[in-house]
Amino acid sequence: MAGCGYFNFMDNLIFELNQVYFSYLGRYPALCGVDIRISSGEKICIIGANGAGKSTFLQLLDALIFADKGSVCFRGKELNEKIFTDAKFSQEFRRQVGFIFQNSEVQLFCPTVKEDIVFGPLNLGFEKGLIQKRLEMLIAALNIEDLLERSPHQLSIGEKRKVAIASTLIIDPQVLILDEPTAGLDPLVTRNIIDLLIQANAEGKTIITATHDLHIVEEIADTVYVFGRQKKIVKSGPAETILTDTQLLQENNLVHIHRHKHKDKVHIHPHLHLDHHGEDA
């Protein structure tokens, strides 16, 4: 058994959810019966319309909220409030699972960018030399040298996102959970981030991403899960299969409806943005 004695590292299963229900304030249902099994080293994508429960699902995986009904297990341990009162367990879990929020605004709360980035490792008891080394690496990878001494809330949305990503990557977790990591970013930064994720996955990390951006799905997902209006998984499968299921995508608000002008006639048709280059040419 590797690592601490808490977790079962023998088999590959990382997360196992059985019939999970969750509602906010007991009134607003957000997840209604989710079943999923996620193995080590997998890369998966969660897609679905606004309000389908993607963010809620991811927060449940990171044990920021707990299921009302059903069970969420991480490496064979059921996640609930009680188990997180154990400081050692909680530290070990936080070291292994990193979460990047949909709203970077909330993820940044320190006076400077630099302090924000080192907040995680400091709280998780990492060694200073190691923190410094990883910090330098991330600064280079994300090109955020100039931002370090600035106040996070005065940055642009894209800059905030980069800092938020750095603040999680510096923990170097085995499982990375990302909630819309590329929303609002320019193409080059998007590319950088996807490359980072692919590299992390190649090193054996598990990547779980929620996104609306179908362009990136194929690169960062072996398996795609579609969350439907029923607030549960309505379909899952390999990226190629899901992305070519136009009807499914259309039902879940995932295709663009375009208006085209061909000569003098305007016509409207749903339109999938996968073969970007082919179409533009």
């Binding site: 920021l64 936080r94 070291r95 929020f101 709203n103 909330v106 709360f109 302090e115 995680g120 709280n123």
Partner: peptide, 19 residues
């Protein structure tokens, strides 16, 4: 609330740690 979640997620346990 959200900020608190974000702090939890990165291992905050109410301790004073300054870099």
């Amino acid at each position: 609330q959200e900020v608190y979640k974000a702090m939890l997620s990165r291992g905050y346990r109410g301790e004073d740690l300054a870099w």
